[in-house]
Simulated scan of single mutants.
Amino acid sequence: MVRSMTGFGRGVTTTDDYQLTVEVRSVNHRFLEIQTKFPKEWLEIELLAKKLLSQFVIRGKLDVVVNLKINEQSVSNVQINWPLIDAYKNAKEQLENVLPLKEKWSMQEIFSIENAIIYEKKEISIEELKSAMEHALTEAANNLVQMREREGQQLASVLLQYKNDLEEQIHLIRKFSPNAVSKYREKLINRMKEIVDSNLIDERILAEVAIYADRVDISEELDRLESHFQQLTETLNEDTSIGRKLDFLMQECLREINTIGSKNQSSDASFAVVQAKTILEKMREQIQNIE
């Protein structure tokens, strides 16, 4: 199945104490490159995430972002930040020595002091985090793969249409290329009539035309192109990473087209060669995004 290298996947693990969200974005890349944005103390979990993703994706540049949200209900203890409260009290007393402030402290005033109250939350073990990460990341990876497969099917349809367009141009090249030999023969006859005895024309023309026909013969290149087109269709149905193979096929097709262009002497076929190159370039651009 054809897979694009562009996609997005999201996975969530929710418990009574926290919600772990993982998002994975991918773009095209020659190899598999995984970049993570995890807390530095999550090194073990980061290694687990990269290993798990490599089981789902073969090529592409992946950015992995994780967000851990602790539920307020999971608070296990509340502590007063006495050093901060004492510092605030001393500052207020110093201010009262200068200004006539006699208002008493209110609970609202105390609670409004930033970090005056310390909420101790339940600690999540590394093993629990690893399990939560595996669940969320698996969900995200599956969603990512599904999106890449949907995009891949669209790419396959585009490539098959381009292949049909390319085959039409190759048909025109095959149709018009023999005209070059006929035109060369006619031109040669007219030229030789001017300078050679007519009794010798036929024999010399046959030899010259035979040499020319061999030099401009593109039948082998056309046959190899037909073979490449067949391989392209078969490759699009393979259930593996096919991007590199398709890119190689495009290089081979372009090489054959360039050889045809250098041999071709027909103006009609030349136009078809230019069109074929244009189509091949569009195909190569699409293939750059296939896994």
Rank of each mutant, 00 (worst) to 15 (best):
G7Q: 05
G9M: 02
V12A: 03
T13R: 13
T15V: 12
Y18R: 06
Q19H: 02
L20T: 01
L20R: 03
E23S: 01
K37G: 01
K37H: 02
F38K: 01
F38H: 00
L47N: 10
K50H: 07
L52K: 11
F56R: 08
V57E: 11
V57S: 11
V64W: 00
K69C: 00
K69R: 00
N71M: 03
Q73T: 09
I80T: 09
N81I: 08
N81Y: 06
W82L: 13
L84Y: 03
L99M: 14
K104T: 14
W105L: 14
S112N: 05
N115H: 14
A116K: 13
A116R: 14
I117R: 07
K122V: 03
E128K: 07
K130E: 12
E134M: 11
M147E: 09
Q153Y: 00
L155T: 10
D165H: 10
E167H: 09
H171Y: 12
L172F: 05
A180Y: 00
R185I: 07
L188W: 00
M192N: 01
V196L: 15
V196T: 02
N199T: 11
N199W: 07
I201C: 06
R204E: 05
L206G: 06
L222D: 09
D223V: 15
R224A: 15
L232V: 13
L232R: 09
L236C: 03
D247H: 14
L249H: 10
E252L: 14
R255F: 10
S262F: 15
S262Q: 15
N264A: 14
Q265F: 08
A272N: 06
E285Q: 13
I287W: 13
N289Y: 06
